[in-house]
Simulated scan of single mutants.
Amino acid sequence: MGQTTEEKFNALKNQTGQVDGKKVAEVFDEAKPVTPDQLTGSWVGGSFDTGHPAHKKLGEVKWAGKDFRSPEDVDPMVVYGENGERVWAESYGRARLREIKFRGVVSTAMVYDNLPIIDSFRHVKDDVVIGAMDSKLLPEKAGTYYFYLSKL
């Protein structure tokens, strides 16, 4: 019997060093859709090091995660402040949630209000989602950036 999506996700999340982006994409594609209501709350962010430039950038800005107050009220980028507190990164603006088809599946996506970025989410378990960032800010050759969120 094969591994579950959650087991495959955990193996990639716990891997040290660089992770194969194709394997992360396979886990994302296997994961089930989420609804906007399932994302309500504060989430801690984690990153897969696939060599994507966003992985390094998020480390530099001390990425903490995302806060979803409602489908129309999202802090898409929360960082750790000087004292370790979670603070909204104002320069990234706000966002909202929409159900969007990405990689053949309709699921919840977060659309930034002021930036050409869409983050699509899929269910790993009730308190963990895997995300895929599609952005016009990065060179097309960078491809999709994969990350994950764990509910606080």
Rank of each mutant, 00 (worst) to 15 (best):
D119V: 09
G2K: 02
L138F: 15
V24P: 09
V106W: 09
G21W: 09
T50S: 13
G65L: 00
K101Q: 02
L137I: 14
G104L: 11
P33K: 02
F147W: 13
V44W: 07
K32E: 08
W43T: 01
M77W: 00
V19A: 07
V106R: 11
F102E: 12
G51W: 09
V105K: 15
E60F: 07
K151D: 12
D75M: 13
K13P: 06
Q18G: 07
G21H: 12
F28C: 03
L152Y: 06
A64C: 04
F102C: 08
I100P: 00
N10M: 08
A25L: 02
S150P: 01
P53H: 11
E140V: 11
W63F: 15
G59Y: 11
R98V: 12
D49P: 11
D67P: 05
K56G: 02
S120W: 01
E82G: 08
K125V: 09
Y148D: 10
S120H: 12
S47K: 05
N14Q: 13
H55Y: 14
H52Q: 05
W63G: 08
G2W: 00
F68P: 02
A54T: 12
S107R: 07
R94N: 14
I100R: 06
L152A: 12
D127C: 10
Y92Q: 14
D127Q: 12
L12I: 13
E82H: 08
S47W: 02
W63C: 06
